[in-house]
Structure formats: structure tokens, C-alpha cells
């Protein structure tokens, strides 16, 4: 595509550097996600709610997590999708 403005060389250089950083960070994150599948995780949600589940997968834009055996206060949900917006953090062991 044709750039909308004549970018200087240093802009192009910085863009390339940024893209490299982005790819390195993302690759490590994806490898980490891969290693979580089928592991027991504990989610910390708002209002100090903690729930345990077996991690399945995440969608590419990290909007939802698919989990199994979600231990909720009212029982165990065999399969579930968790909205990432509802999660503050989650923990697992490797």
C-alpha cells in the first residue's frame, strides 16, 4: 500500500522495531497459552471471587476463555466460556 505521508527513514525503522517487539512478545504469550491447556487454573474475578477450572483455550483476541469443570459457588459447570473482562488474573503451575 502507498503510505499517506512521506515517512522518514527513522519512522520506518521504529515501526520495524516495534513490529519485532510485538512478534516476540506475542509468540511467547501464545506458547504460554498452549502450555496451559488441560491444566488446572484458578481465576480471580471481581469482588474477590475465586473459581477453579480446567483451562481449555482462548480466542485469538483474548476475549473469552473456554474452560471445563468450572467450580462455581452453586455447582460444577461441565463446560463454560469465561469473559476475559470479568477476570482480573489467573494462576497455574508448570
Amino acid at each position: 500500500s502507498i503510505p499517506t505521508s512521506a515517512g522518514s527513514e527513522s519512522d520506518a525503522e521504529q515501526l520495524q522495531e516495534e513490529q519485532h517487539a510485538r512478534s516476540v512478545l506475542r509468540e511467547t504469550f501464545l506458547r504460554c497459552l498452549l502450555s496451559i491447556s488441560n491444566k488446572k487454573v484458578q481465576f480471580r474475578m471481581h469482588e474477590k471471587v475465586k473459581v477453579d477450572a480446567t483451562f481449555g483455550a482462548s480466542d485469538i483476541d483474548v476475549l473469552n476463555f473456554q474452560v471445563s469443570d468450572l467450580h462455581t459457588p452453586i455447582g460444577v459447570q461441565k463446560e463454560a466460556l469465561i469473559r476475559c473482562q470479568d477476570v482480573i488474573s489467573f494462576t497455574f503451575d508448570v
Binding site: 510485538r22 516476540v24 512478545l25 506475542r26 511467547t28 504469550f29 480471580r44 483474548v62 482480573i88 488474573s89
Partner: peptide, 21 residues
């Protein structure tokens, strides 16, 4: 969040969601 604090070695930051590992 409101009251969580975590410490650890930072492995990576997901550039899509800005999540820290």
C-alpha cells in the same frame, strides 16, 4: 483490580490484550 497485588518475573506481555505473564 481493586485489591490485588502480584509479584513475579515478567515473561511477556501479550501485545493484543496487554496481559502480563
Amino acid at each position: 483490580g481493586k485489591d490485588e497485588e502480584h509479584r513475579g518475573w515478567l515473561l511477556t506481555v501479550d501485545p493484543v490484550s496487554a496481559s502480563l505473564v
